[in-house]
Design a protein around this nucleic acid. Structure first.
Lengths: 109, 109
DNA sequence: TGAACATATGAACAACTAATCATATGAGGA
DNA sequence: TCCTCATATGATTAGTTGTTCATATGTTCA
């Protein structure tokens, strides 16, 4: 197994977050790693929208959007509120925007 | 196709980034959406490391690590430098850290 | 030059994911 | 109560992804 790294590895292991946190972090970014979901989150930047408005905006079926909204909701990235027949979704917190903003900085340089 | 949203949609479409950028953004986050890659990037927080040190740290095969390093390199998230037989990888820029930091904030609240 | 070491790479496969289709749930109005 | 509209959900499937295995490339040293 190659030359000796034990000194370096010992130090790095100390500073690394726990495996479970790294897993959660990966799971979080996985959710941002889909264009449809990114678009949904962007659409909600200015405020809440009902499902059919989102699906019209993205030119995708209501079912596809609903599935993705469920994913986003399960990850606590969006929240839902019912008003009559419609259900309005909105961003859960400001983290969504700041995460996207950081990503944006990287691709536009 | 449901009730009328044209006013709202028109406004939102104006403020949305171009499709291509949203695609790039999704592709970027997709790379962060894997625990192995997250761990590699974290390992490089303190400085460069050679491939076999990383594979030893993560207890994974050299091949698996090499494949992931290629993914990271293709996305300009890490850079490589050869020194003799070894190849040392390091983070390409500070964006990596700030993106991860933002994600971390979300999961630790 | 040849052996040993470090890394890269292509093919193959299992696991996962996102969209689709069909259908279920749930609310409002006639 | 029945019909319609808005949304949710389960099953299926095509496409994608991460790891493994085998092997290739490239460097050092004797």
């Amino acid at each position: 197994m190659a030359h000796d790294h034990s000194e370096l590895l010992k130090k790095i292991k100390k500073d690394m977050p726990a495996d479970e946190q790294l897993q959660d972090l990966g799971d979080l970014f996985k959710i941002f790693g889909d264009t449809t979901r990114i678009k949904i989150m962007y659409a909600l930047y200015e405020g809440e929208m009902c499902v059919c408005a989102i699906s019209e905006l993205l030119c995708m079926t209501q079912s596809a959007i609903s599935h993705q909204l469920k994913t986003l909701k399960d990850a606590n990235l969006v929240s839902a509120r019912r008003d009559g027949k419609e259900i309005y979704y909105s961003l859960s917190d400001e983290h969504v925007k700041s995460i996207i903003a950081e990503g944006f900085e990287h691709i536009t340089e």
